[in-house]
Write a protein that binds this DNA or RNA. Structure first.
Lengths: 345, 345
DNA sequence: CCGCTGCATGTTTACGTCAACATTGACGGG
DNA sequence: CCCGTCAATGTTGACGTAAACATGCAGCGG
């Protein structure tokens, strides 16, 4: 009972379904794509045949035919930071209901060559557009060879970019954090900054600086970490040893965690002796000890807006470098309080 | 100076390069794919032409032609847990150097319909194989309609699966944790378990139970959380109120964090009054307060092995349901110690 | 009952790439 | 100087799909 002479490992194609159902390939195509103008009986016959032969559309052919992959590339440096991970999640959640899947394109070290390489691979790699999630200055002065005509949206990066941008309002968030501490009565606020090559870190630091200046406060030298709890701990140790410090704004929650540990190790009580504010509002930060007051940024909103922007670009063809800022909110928990009464010297 | 009559927005194809270089399309193809038997002068001419017209290969056509996408799908329920996020990262890091990119396919709630839906979308979505990263029992008793002939590897799931599996050795890890606490002198170990529908959670719990039994200890009723710090805190509150508890094994670090908070809130000192062991060895857990003793699992190794297995399956066509277990190690930090001396009643 | 309308369905073709096969011409041994 | 060899390059066709166009047929107004 030989079925046919086909190589057994070939996936069934439209032609196979058509033969099985006794119709033309075109009719199968119409059924698959839900076109009208197909008789109900025929449609059912085709559906049955599809099921019987185990047909699934070949999207390579489909993509070739109509020039669309229904997939978005996300080019990112690392999944290790909570922020990137949550943003990616948000992008995926926004893209999937719109019928797009996500293709990851991680780049190790952000040297110019690597990013460009990733882009060309991405361009080969079946995507209709790209979300750039690389928060690095390097992207800036490189003459990055973006594939011509590939829609791009940038999250959290180069302020002088020619591409549409979506970002959390870093400046507003940092101001919120700093003002909160000032309002509590602290004379000034120290800053545990993010890495120097990060735009997000730069914006947060600048805004912290500006807020202090606006209130006429002294601006202490910030310490730069790398977003990791480890760096927060190392740098936090320095801060913990400085008795004049009463308030610290950490550039993210992970560094705040390391900072809290350093503070505990040196017997500085939080918030009694020192207040700490983080940035991100990680799921975990409510359970730090003490629970962390922090700036909540809406990763979901950023992801959604980025996908929306990109999809508009893709479908309309237009690409005006718009710029969207998503505001943050202050989440007050137990790591901040009024400063201790001044010890009379 | 009209160049030609092409629609301006069409991406240049091989034919365009061929025309520009004055060769046939086939020669361009040979150059692109680095074949030998091309004269150096010709090769250079083609390379120049490619650059001039901004040519980039169309991988839809390429994929259609040779039936390979050079992309792996990852179907996962959520990116929110640290474990999933790190595993994904590991998979991506393993796949990229081998010339494969990663296509994400998140599924919201793991109802059977949803997973199947995701699979069919995945199959449409230009992948050569799939890594299943759904740690749910539902996958089990569903007659999941896996696309026929699509290579699959499962991470961390169904023990009676027909697919190759790669997983952290949950049992060995849980035994390590439990034994460590017992060796410290604790009479028994309480367990903050993961969700009931999770295989990983189930394995850890079973092994914890078995280890206690083997030592002839009483097995207290475990409490089930959902991997989140929040659930660790809620359940931890119950544990904190129970004065007989001296040692707790939490099924992951996030829950351990919530647990630590609950213990602090109730004035139970860690490790003086109560010892805590986690599972995962998150980057953060070294900075919990106190720094967490935990079981380190090698996400990188799991990801690498999964990709290797899948790639073997893809290239060889074979698919024996192999099973790989990646061992864990105990990382001793400051959250464990000998139990407090028994108070004479 | 003729011819027009419009729906259901079939046929052709192009999308971009690359393997298989075909062609061309240079070179060298006999 | 003829022919075989081999390197460089060209030509054809197929992958699976879907748009554009073609066909056939039922129903209906006049």
């Amino acid at each position: 009972m030989v079925q046919d002479a086909l190589p057994a490992d070939r996936r069934p194609s439209m032609a196979d379904v058509a033969r099985e159902a006794g119709v033309s390939g075109q009719t199968v195509s119409r059924v698959v794509n839900g076109r009208v103008n197909v008789d109900d009986a025929t449609r059912q016959r085709v559906l049955d045949a599809m099921h019987r032969v185990g047909y699934r559309p070949n999207s390579a052919a489909r993509a070739l035919r109509n020039g669309q992959f229904h997939s978005l590339g996300v080019i990112m440096s690392t999944l290790a930071t909570v922020g990137n991970s949550r943003t990616l999640n948000a992008i995926a959640s926004a893209a999937v209901p719109r019928g797009y899947s996500i293709t990851l394109m991680p780049v190790g070290h952000t040297t110019q060559g690597e990013v460009t390489g990733a882009f060309s691979r991405l361009n080969e790699q079946l995507v209709d557009g790209v979300v750039v999630l690389i928060d690095e200055h390097e992207l800036d002065h490189s003459e990055i060879q973006l594939p011509h005509g590939l829609p791009v949206v940038v999250i959290d990066s180069n302020p002088r970019s020619d591409y549409p941008m979506v970002d959390t309002d870093q400046a507003q968030g940092a101001e919120l954090a700093t003002t909160h501490l000032l309002d509590l009565g602290h004379r000034t606020v120290h800053h545990l900054a993010g890495p120097r090559h990060s735009y997000a870190a730069e914006h947060r630091e600048k805004s912290w600086r500006a807020t202090l200046a606006r209130h006429g406060r002294q601006v202490p030298e910030p310490l730069s970490g790398d977003w990791s709890a480890e760096s927060g701990h190392t740098l936090g140790t320095t801060l913990a040893r400085n008795p004049s410090v009463t308030a610290i704004f950490a550039a993210n929650d992970q560094m705040a965690l390391g900072l809290l540990r350093a503070l505990h190790e040196h017997g500085r009580r939080v918030p009694h002796d020192i207040s700490v504010v983080g940035f991100d509002d990680t799921d975990e930060s409510a359970h730090f000890w003490p629970p962390l007051t922090t700036i909540r940024q809406s990763f979901a909103e950023v992801g959604r807006r980025a996908v929306d922007t990109l999809l508009t670009e893709i479908t309309s063809g237009a690409h005006e470098p718009t710029s969207i800022n998503v505001p943050t909110t202050l989440v007050t928990r137990s790591s901040t309080a009024a400063p201790p009464p001044r010890t009379p010297s």
